[in-house]
Design a binder for these strands. Sequence first.
DNA 1: TACATAACGAACAATATGTTTTATAATAAA
DNA 2: TTTATTATAAAACATATTGTTCGTTATGTA
Lengths: 187, 187
Amino acid sequence: MDRRQQKTRAAIFKAFGVLLEHKNYNNITVQEIIDGANIGRSTFYAHFETKDDLLKELCKELFGHIINSAIDCTHTHGLYSDNNAPKSVFCHLLQHLEENDNNILGLLSCESSDIFLRYFKDSLNELIKIQFVNQDRHRNTMLPEDFLVNHISGSFVEMVLWWIKEHMKHSPTELDQYFRAVIEPIL
Amino acid sequence: MDRRQQKTRAAIFKAFGVLLEHKNYNNITVQEIIDGANIGRSTFYAHFETKDDLLKELCKELFGHIINSAIDCTHTHGLYSDNNAPKSVFCHLLQHLEENDNNILGLLSCESSDIFLRYFKDSLNELIKIQFVNQDRHRNTMLPEDFLVNHISGSFVEMVLWWIKEHMKHSPTELDQYFRAVIEPIL
DNA sequence: TACATAACGAACAATATGTTTTATAATAAA
DNA sequence: TTTATTATAAAACATATTGTTCGTTATGTA
């Protein structure tokens, strides 16, 4: 990829992120992004079709990165015992979040965080589904698998949302404990 | 309230709802709402400051109604035994949803459902918090109360989201069972 | 009936959108 | 280094949306 393209793309993402810290997504204009990134109007439209398109691409980059790292984590460490596998992935994710890779926390705590959280949940859903398939563990057979997968990813995302709302007073380890406490009894 | 105002307000809500069934919230223009409601431009702005304002008012009406009915439900039936109180409220809510009061399901299943679900969750959070306070039951003391409240309301909303995504194949009773299965073990 | 007020409709400035064109500058490949 | 390629800039453009204003008409209320 052309160095110029990389720079422009990065500048747009950066400006978009800065704007999101102070303004609602809906109220951010393409013009503001252009001004913030200090680029020409036509340049923006050479990169992204619309503001929604920009949002989608940003989500792809952000969560693609964090989810891939989670997948690698399970691969690198090989197979865990049935009881530990899913926990580790969540703790790993929480630590990643706390490190604030790519200012992901800024986006998850902005006024328009819903958009990002929803995307995050969809990514998580895939991850957990794979985990379930890979380890044909004995689990609660009262509940449909897709309900369970949805419940786990949903609960995780809602917990992150709560964590952020409470100004991240808790450590990843604490959160991991809480999460185990509400998920393990039902598996 | 003047009958004219009532009619106009209803026409705007109706038109807005119809538009939401086919278009994303972001891409709906005030002009379209005006045309759909068949009212004058200045009339719209006499009722709502912005499109966001309209959204907020719609949420207030919708969820105010359903949540109040849930609160009444707990009052009318008096106090339940410690074990049954929260369940009943959720089942009641699910039945209300299935009855599709005010086409609430249309809004919860539209492309912009996130907005409504988030508002729904906030309302639920209040409801559950009150439930917890009213019945100083013996509960899991390993978890902070606000974490637990958030987990319950979050899980419920995520379940509804899943239910809708799966085209509402399950009955309220089934959902209530699933929900009990994932919540009761942790209380 | 008479008063109050809601709705209408037209016009308005200001702003945002997405496209097009031409010129310039940076990059990659030879 | 030279050349061909390609990204960017800048300006102009038609179009659309927004939110406001104001005089008129219609409707509801007391």
